[in-house]
Amino acid sequence: MDAQLSDVEAGKRFYGELFGWTFSEPGQAYGSSVWARLDGDRVAALSPKVDGRMPTVWTVYFATPDAGALGRRIAGAGGQLVVAPFPVGDLGTAGLAADPDGAVFGLWQAGTHPGFGRRHAPGTFVWAELYTRDVAAANTFYGGLFHEALFGADAEPDFGRADVGEVFPAEMPSHFLTHFRAEDLDDILGAVQRLGGRVQVPPFETSYGRVAVVTDNQGASFALLQR
């Protein structure tokens, strides 16, 4: 996953204090992006927006052995390619796609960078929730693309689907919401606000834990999950 930000330095200050992340120097990841690390393990990347009109957002990338073939399957299933797969140096091949309801997600074909160095630990990725207007259609679309990864008997759960209206106003577009694990949700919500972020949705109970939705100091939304 990565965050597209107007000010990467401000993002480093916010997430560094919030999660205890450290950061690589520009050029060690790709372009002007920086790796975010926790105890040396890669947990995310922060990237500068190449166009100010782009949204400030966290993007989750689905792993695939063939980004080009997956892009064709997405289009054939009623989705669309937003950014066709392109090489990211020797790290891998990336792309952006949207499902039939407009929710955007990334594609990642690994080269030298396989993905998360750590997840499910405090301060790292723990869950992605798709908020959609049509849960049944989303199950069909993503189940057809990623059946084994999403629904396999041996898969560790990372992904869920819910109706937009369960948490957000009815007019909210379909979207993916990245969740970071929190040891103490109330404490970390206080830190978000001290650092210039805001609480978008106060804590609520889900089948996978207690969740709150926040925005960072630049407006990127994410969730905090206490298992």
Score class of each variant (00 low, 15 high):
D2E: 14
S6C: 02
V8R: 03
R13L: 10
G16L: 07
E17M: 01
T22M: 04
S24H: 04
L38T: 00
G40K: 02
R42P: 01
R42L: 02
V43Q: 06
A44K: 00
P48K: 12
D51M: 13
R53L: 11
M54I: 03
Y61E: 08
A63V: 01
T64W: 03
P65H: 11
L70T: 15
R72P: 00
R72H: 04
I74S: 05
A77Y: 13
Q80A: 15
V83K: 10
P85E: 12
G92C: 10
T93K: 12
T93V: 15
L96D: 01
L96Y: 14
D99R: 05
D99Y: 07
P100L: 11
P100M: 10
P100R: 11
P100Q: 09
V104I: 15
V104A: 12
G106F: 08
L107I: 08
G111K: 09
T112C: 03
H113W: 11
G117P: 01
G123W: 03
A128P: 00
E129P: 02
L130I: 04
Y131A: 12
T132P: 07
D134G: 05
V135M: 07
N139L: 10
G144Q: 14
L145Y: 06
H147W: 04
E148T: 13
A149I: 03
F151S: 06
F151A: 05
G152M: 13
G152W: 12
A153R: 13
A153D: 13
A155C: 05
D158G: 02
F159G: 04
G160I: 06
G160M: 07
D163S: 14
G165E: 15
E166I: 03
E171K: 07
H175I: 07
E183C: 00
E183W: 00
D184G: 03
D187C: 02
I188P: 00
L189S: 04
G190Q: 09
G190P: 01
G196P: 06
R198Q: 12
V199S: 00
V199L: 11
P203R: 08
E205P: 00
V211F: 08
V213F: 11
V214P: 01
T215S: 14
N217D: 14
S221A: 15
F222V: 09
A223E: 05
A223L: 10
L224Y: 06
R227K: 07
